[in-house]
Computed example of a mutant assay.
Amino acid sequence: MDFMDLLRSYPVIPALRFEGQKKIDLSSIQTGGPCFLLDGNINTIKLILEKIEKHFSTFFLHLDLFSGLSADQDGLIFMKKHFQEINGIISTRSRTISLAKKLGFITIFRIFLLDSESLNTGLKVASQLSPEAIEILPGIIFPFIQKQIPIKNLPPVICGGFIRNREEVKSILQSGATAVSTSSPDLWMRG
């Protein structure tokens, strides 16, 4: 399944945080989709992947949030060699996205929207990087600003942040986003 088909088939992406969590219940998710790994360190990646590998087909690691892994070329080569289960890299840093792309990772460029200038700058950088997707945060505002975003000229848009219920997910997807990422387990449920 190619990346776009994956997002269309699994439009709600679990965004997993393990540090400080006693247990993450994945029993109600639709298996076979992607997930975002949002925290951890070089010593916990294998353990995390072992816990969740049967539930997901595609793993994206937010490299900016993992400790012990450098976002430089050597760090990415190390990841590619030692953590082959990781299919993609999420980052707010253009250099990280560029390096990850060259090494064959699926890349997601994360853009934090503080104002219209951050939107314009983020979209300009994204057009230069050509990531496989753009993640817009906070995703909850997407329906209100989507007219300012040239969705047809962009890779798939994923929205994350402050998405708490199914109505918000529906509104975001109906506004043109391809998928949402969320750490709210209630939204990971099948169907």
Rank of each mutant, 00 (worst) to 15 (best):
L99H: 02
K101P: 02
P131Y: 02
F162P: 08
I90L: 07
F162D: 12
S130E: 12
P131H: 05
P131G: 04
K152L: 11
S70Y: 09
M79Q: 09
S118Q: 12
I151N: 01
R93C: 07
F78H: 06
G104V: 04
G161C: 10
D72Q: 11
S118W: 12
P138F: 03
L137Q: 10
E85G: 09
D72M: 11
S118P: 11
S118C: 09
I86Q: 02
L99T: 01
I108W: 03
V125K: 12
T96Y: 07
I134L: 09
F162T: 07
F142L: 07
F78V: 01
I108R: 03
E132P: 05
K80I: 00
Q148W: 14
F142V: 01
Q146G: 07
K102W: 07
I86T: 02
H82C: 11
N87A: 11
R166L: 11
N153T: 10
I163Y: 05
F112Y: 15
H82Q: 14
E135M: 11
R95L: 14
R95I: 14
I141D: 03
G104Q: 07
Q84A: 15
P143W: 06
G139I: 06
I86G: 02
P138N: 03
K152I: 08
E132H: 10
K80Y: 01
I97G: 00
P131T: 04
Q73V: 10
L99C: 04
K81P: 07
F83W: 13
S70K: 13
N165Y: 15
L119A: 03
A126H: 02
P138Y: 01
I86A: 05
G75A: 05
I111V: 08
E167P: 14
E117T: 15
T121W: 15
K102S: 14
P150T: 03
E167V: 14
I90H: 00
N87K: 13
I90E: 00
F83S: 06
F144A: 15
K81Y: 09
P155N: 02
K101G: 03
G122S: 00
L76I: 04
F109I: 05
Q146D: 08
P150M: 07
I134P: 01
P150C: 07
V125S: 13
I89V: 15
T92W: 06
L154V: 07
K81E: 12
I158W: 01
A133V: 05
D72R: 15
N165M: 11
R110V: 01
E168D: 15
S98D: 13
L76T: 00
P131S: 05
G161P: 05
S70W: 12
R95W: 12
T92R: 07
R164V: 09
K147T: 11
F105D: 00
L129A: 10
D74Q: 15
L123S: 05
E135Y: 06
E135F: 06
A133D: 02
E135W: 07
K124T: 13
F162V: 13
V157W: 09
R95E: 13
P143A: 08
S94Y: 13
K152M: 11
I158P: 00
G75P: 02
K147E: 14
V157R: 08
P156K: 06
